[in-house]
Computed example of a mutant assay.
Amino acid sequence: MVGHLAELLRQNGYEIGQNRLFERLRNQGWLSNRKGEDWNMPTQKSLDRDFFEIKESTHNNADGSVGITKTPKVTGKGQIYFVNKFLQELDV
Rank of each mutant, 00 (worst) to 15 (best):
V2T: 12
P42T: 02
A62S: 14
Q28K: 12
I68M: 11
R24F: 02
K77M: 12
R34M: 04
I80D: 15
Q11C: 09
G64S: 08
E56R: 05
T43D: 01
K55W: 03
F82D: 02
Q11L: 14
F86W: 05
K85D: 12
Q11G: 15
G78C: 03
V2R: 05
E23A: 15
E37R: 14
M1N: 09
N61H: 10
N60D: 12
M1D: 10
Q18G: 13
S65I: 02
E7V: 06
E23N: 09
N27K: 12
Q28I: 01
T43K: 08
I54W: 03
T75M: 08
D50C: 06
G29C: 02
L5Q: 03
G76T: 13
I80L: 14
T69A: 13
F86M: 11
L21M: 07
M1H: 13
G76F: 14
H4N: 15
F82Q: 05
L25T: 03
R26Q: 08
Q44C: 01
N27R: 10
S65L: 01
M41R: 13
P42E: 00
E37T: 12
R34F: 03
N60S: 14
L90S: 12
Q18W: 01
V83I: 14
R49H: 11
I54C: 04
G78I: 04
K70E: 04
S46E: 00
E56K: 10
S32M: 02
W30A: 00
G64I: 01
T58F: 07
Q28A: 11
L21A: 09
L9R: 11
N33V: 05
G64D: 04
G13L: 04
P42M: 00
R20H: 07
L87I: 12
F82R: 02
T71K: 03
T75V: 08
E15N: 13
G29P: 01
F22C: 07
E15R: 15
K35L: 07
Q11K: 15
V2D: 01
S65D: 06
R20D: 12
S32Q: 03
V92D: 11
L25H: 04
W30P: 01
N84S: 11
R34V: 10
F86G: 09
K85N: 13
H4Q: 13
L5E: 01
R34G: 06
H4K: 15
L9A: 13
Y14Q: 02
G3C: 10
V92A: 14
G78N: 04
L21F: 08
G76A: 11
T69K: 15
F86Q: 07
S65V: 01
G78P: 05
H4W: 09
N60F: 06
E56Q: 07
L8V: 13
T58Q: 14
N19E: 15
Q44S: 06
K77A: 08
S32I: 00
R10W: 02
D50N: 13
L87S: 09
R20G: 10
D48T: 05
Q11D: 12
S46Q: 04
L9S: 11
G36H: 11
G67R: 09
Y81L: 06
T43I: 08
I68H: 08
R34K: 14
R34Y: 06
G17W: 09
G78D: 00
I80C: 07
E53Y: 12
G76Q: 11
K35Y: 03
L5W: 01
H59I: 01
W30C: 00
L87W: 03
V74H: 04
